[in-house]
Nucleic acid binder design. Sequence first.
DNA 1: CAACAAACGAGAGCGGCGCTCTTGACATTG
DNA 2: CAATGTCAAGAGCGCCGCTCTCGTTTGTTG
Lengths: 257, 257
Amino acid sequence: MGMTSAEPTATQAEDQARPQAKAKPPTPRERARTQTIADIIRLGREHLAVHGAAALSLRAVARDLGVVSSAVYRYVENRDELLTLLLIDAYNELGDEVDAAVESVPDQDFAGQFRALGHAVRAWAIREPASYALLFGSPVPGYQAPGERTTVPGTRVIVRLVGIFDAAFRAGALAAEVTPAVVIPPALAEDLAAIRAEMNLAAPDASLARGVLAWTSVFGAISFEVFGQYGADTFAAREELFEHQLGVLQGVVGLQG
Amino acid sequence: MGMTSAEPTATQAEDQARPQAKAKPPTPRERARTQTIADIIRLGREHLAVHGAAALSLRAVARDLGVVSSAVYRYVENRDELLTLLLIDAYNELGDEVDAAVESVPDQDFAGQFRALGHAVRAWAIREPASYALLFGSPVPGYQAPGERTTVPGTRVIVRLVGIFDAAFRAGALAAEVTPAVVIPPALAEDLAAIRAEMNLAAPDASLARGVLAWTSVFGAISFEVFGQYGADTFAAREELFEHQLGVLQGVVGLQG
DNA sequence: CAACAAACGAGAGCGGCGCTCTTGACATTG
DNA sequence: CAATGTCAAGAGCGCCGCTCTCGTTTGTTG
């Protein structure tokens, strides 16, 4: 919910830019407005969880809000805007839980941090399947997330994951030689070099590439589980299956634990 | 498209069950009806490809068919039924292409077959992103695929993949010891034993578990690419990235190549 | 305090959706 | 020929996103 207050409109931002004027105390109207938007997001989340993203309806949240449908357009530009708010909200909730899980593991236990990250993502995904589907499932047709608002929260997990790998490498806890050795073609090496430069990383190409594999594989396993790609009765021990997959991936990326 | 004729209604099935009566020559009416259903599926596929599953509309299909909206209900029970038809159609198209790709590789080149399968799935997914999203993305809210009609086509890829692994094992081409070794808890071993029995497999638990990991990881990598989880410019060499991931997974499952 | 402007909720309305039901035209068959 | 079955069309229901207008409320300012 924090992002609603962290999202001043352009004019509000200009107002606040004026020297220490009474920018602090919000008028009752502003407080009511902020509260209404928060309510809309809350109701939107409930509808999302119960009925799924495609069935998210402004009219329905208006009903729950006890207001006529056209009134919500005073607060939310359109349905896509509400979707964006829910997207950011979900990204941040996931990011917060992943951060908390990783930080509960000792500083130097990089393998433990990797597993904690994986388990945190899976736990959140199973608890909030509709939100997970919104973030990592099929794109909503006709909806394009505004990158300038979603990129930062949307990359928190991968940034954290890369951070673990790189910290492990710098601490000498990442296997220098990964097995099996697979050559990295020049074009891919270029992409990895750009990532290394942008994120200020130290790990070599082979480790980075395996980090990408671990990233996609963790989400692939979770997506299969959440989206019901495993049959209904194929796997009863899903927790153990995921734990095993994490263990194998941990070895693949060279995190000794 | 073959499945439309392979999908007789219950009454038609009963008719055909009568001893070799003139069940063969379809009346002109039946032919017209079959053709119309095929047209609906074709138009549905086009709409699916252009506008996505959530925007699939019977009214739009009816317009393209040059008919009033209520008329299509003579041929398709409802929107979910059309979705099911498209689902089966897509599963079979993917299955056909995977089969063809795998069979174009020499019998004993199991690693090559694994890679061919992966590349075939990826190529189809990139060519038909909406169909891929329908099969492997977020479930369509409120739609439950009828298992008795979708299970068989929906499991063709994994059955094929398991077949490759098991044939490799029986041919002695699957590494006996996988690295890194990760213990398999008893509950997971039970699931794997059930799978081994049901699919008549020979490979040991560790290999089967890694097969599952390879399965989810391949689809995870493809989903990230098709669903735009990689940033727009993060990876230019996506083909090489996927090829590299396949190579690593091939080593993980123990397919020497 | 009164006047004004901004923000607000309500309501009507547009086109589109899935789906149902009825009606009249047409073909197939006994 | 007449009975039967199939078909397209149309009207209609409730839902959706979204827009526009119209009074009312609320906070600000002269």
